[in-house]
Amino acid sequence: MAGFRDIDGAVVGESGIEHFGDVFREQRRLAAGDALVPLDDRAVIEVAGPERLGWLDSITSQALGRIGAGESTELLVLDPQGRVEHAAGVLDDGTSTWLIADAADAEGLATWLQRMKFRTQATVELRPDLALLGFVDGGAAATRADEIASRPAGTALVWTDPWQRVSAGGHQYAEVAEHPGAGLAWRAAIVSRETADALAASLGSADVAGLLAAEALRVAAWRPRWSAEVDERSLPHESDWIRTAVHLNKGCYRGQETVAKVHNLGHPPRRLAALHLDGSDAVLPAAGDPVFAGDDEVGHVTSVARHHEDGPIALAILSRRAPVGDLVVRTDGGDIAAAQQVIVPGDAGATADIPRLTRLSRRPSAPDPRRAG
Rank of each mutant, 00 (worst) to 15 (best):
D310G: 00
G299C: 12
H19A: 12
V176L: 13
A32N: 10
K250Y: 07
A140I: 10
W241Q: 06
H276G: 10
R254Y: 10
A293K: 04
D347H: 09
V328C: 10
A142T: 12
R187M: 11
P345Y: 14
V37M: 03
A260L: 08
Q62P: 07
A101T: 03
S96K: 05
A372C: 09
D240C: 02
D102Q: 11
S239I: 09
D310C: 08
T111W: 00
S192Q: 02
S303M: 05
V84T: 07
G68V: 04
E85L: 15
D129F: 11
A245M: 04
T60M: 06
H247V: 06
A142H: 00
L132H: 08
A322T: 07
D146H: 15
R83L: 06
R127I: 12
Q164E: 11
P128Y: 03
T244A: 13
D161S: 13
R371M: 13
G134T: 10
V191K: 03
I67G: 12
W98Y: 06
G21E: 00
A145M: 12
E215H: 08
F20A: 09
A287N: 03
A316W: 00
S72M: 07
V328G: 07
Q81L: 13
I336H: 02
I343T: 03
Q114R: 14
A145K: 09
R83F: 07
G9I: 08
G139I: 10
E215M: 07
L199N: 01
S58R: 06
R271L: 02
D34N: 14
G325T: 11
L211F: 05
Y253A: 04
T111D: 12
A206N: 13
V44S: 03
E51I: 13
A141D: 12
V47M: 06
I17T: 13
L248P: 01
R370Y: 00
I7R: 03
E257G: 06
H86T: 00
A274F: 15
L184H: 02
E85Y: 06
H307K: 02
A149K: 06
S58K: 03
G82W: 02
G204W: 01
G334V: 09
V23T: 14
Q256D: 14
G3D: 09
N264P: 08
I100H: 02
G349E: 01
V191I: 10
S365D: 15
S234C: 05
S361D: 13
A293C: 04
G183E: 09
L157V: 14
H247P: 00
A35K: 14
A153D: 08
A101F: 00
D57E: 10
S205H: 09
A185I: 04
A101P: 02
Q114T: 13
E238P: 01
W241T: 06
G89R: 01
G3Q: 13
E18K: 15
I100R: 04
V12H: 05
G134V: 11
D161V: 05
L275C: 00
G311R: 11
V262R: 01
Q81G: 10
W222H: 12
D40M: 14
A189C: 08
T97K: 07
L113I: 12
F4N: 03
E297A: 15
E232V: 12
P312Q: 09
S234L: 04
D332L: 11
V342I: 15
R356G: 06
L30I: 11
G251H: 07
T97R: 00
A196T: 06
H19S: 15
V298L: 02
R5Q: 14
R362C: 07
F292W: 10
S234R: 10
V191S: 03
N264Y: 08
G138T: 14
